[in-house]
């Protein structure tokens, strides 16, 4: 049995809010790597561990998605609990679409008790894009009121009802941002609002439009936000020009510029080209002031994540 789950409740290190490895890496100024796990349609823990293995080699934390795209898979809390048992550090994603405030606050305590130390607060895609469009959308919280609520639970030791929490959840609080979609001018302002609500790190959606992202980051630096929150830029390998076009028109909030699609189209081996673009993006992200790491979302290409990170050279300075 692994000891992570039987560890006694203890205070986080000085100047930290949690025992999270991701928090330690970010606070120490190292370039952080997080990666998204493709959740299995299965009740077998082995399927989770198989998906986690290639990510765990390079990632400081593994994101367990919460029915992303409104498609049903193994739950994020289940995956997170399995990952902590095996010694991985998960990012427990919470979407506001499927659960109300009673369920979410309870799950936050449960997740923390199982050794989860990172959460990512998300609004969630609408039910209409998923595999069960007839489902009732909940949206009791939105991502910001959720952030503030978990912060209140952690720092003030109470539920939103005012009832006291004996031992509060020690969680590193994250949120998402999508810099490359409208309203562009307001995206940095919205980030400021998320920081105000309690976000300590940000994982962005896919970024394929570097100039647009640089413009966003310039405004973020003007607002002084890069000093208040760690930003991890979202990247991922494209499979083919067709897949990129499909994603652009069917998955909410994804912007792929025509130039990138053209490049994929002209490539002899699109798979290789997608990987190459991803590596280049990671190297470019590293050079942008205020970017503290990358978040790799390699949908159905998890096995390539480790190679992508190694080839990008961003971990070269790390003692491993």
């Amino acid at each position: 049995m692994d000891h992570t789950i039987s560890q006694p409740y203890s205070a986080p290190p000085e100047g930290h809010v949690s025992h999270s490895r991701l928090e330690r890496v970010l606070r120490s100024g190292r370039f952080a790597i997080t990666a998204e796990l493709n959740p299995p349609d299965s009740a077998d823990p082995a399927d989770v561990y198989e998906a986690a293995r290639p990510l765990g080699e390079v990632a400081d934390a593994i994101n367990a998605t919460d029915a992303s795209g409104a498609n049903c898979h193994m739950s994020s809390i289940g995956i997170s609990a399995l990952l902590t048992r095996a010694g991985y550090s998960p990012v427990y994603q919470i979407s506001c679409r499927d659960r109300n405030r009673i369920a979410i606050q309870g799950d936050v305590l449960g997740a923390a008790a199982m050794g989860v130390s990172n959460v990512l607060c998300l609004t969630g895609d609408g039910v209409g894009v998923g595999d069960q469009p007839g489902a009732k959308p909940v949206f009791d919280f939105d991502s910001l009121s959720l952030l503030r609520t978990i912060k209140t639970m952690r720092d003030e030791r109470r539920f939103l009802s005012g009832r006291t929490i004996k031992n509060p959840p020690q969680l590193f609080l994250g949120a998402a941002e999508n810099p490359c979609i409208p309203p562009y001018d307001w995206r940095p302002e919205r980030l400021a609002k998320k920081v105000e609500a309690g976000a300590e790190y940000i994982q962005t959606n896919y970024i394929y439009d570097v100039p647009l992202f640089e413009k966003f980051m310039a405004r973020v630096r003007d607002l002084g936000l890069d000093k208040k929150v760690y930003i991890l830029a979202g990247v991922g390998p494209l499979a083919s020009a067709r897949a990129a076009r499909w994603m652009r028109s069917n998955v909410p909030g994804i912007h792929v510029p025509d130039a990138v699609i053209d490049r994929m189209e002209k490539a002899e081996k699109p798979g290789k080209e997608g990987k190459k673009i991803c590596i280049e993006l990671i190297q470019q992200m590293r050079e942008i002031a205020g970017v503290s790491g990358v978040h790799v979302m390699a949908y159905r290409k998890e096995h390539e994540v480790s190679a992508i990170i190694r080839e990008s050279g961003v971990l070269a300075s790390r003692k491993r």
């Binding site: 609004t123 895609d125 609408g126 939105d142 999508n178 307001w186 909410p252």
Partner: peptide, 17 residues
Amino acid sequence: CPKQLRNGPCGGVRPGG
């Protein structure tokens, strides 16, 4: 807002707003 968000746009806004 179909998601009844109280704190700003979600990450799914389409081109043209």
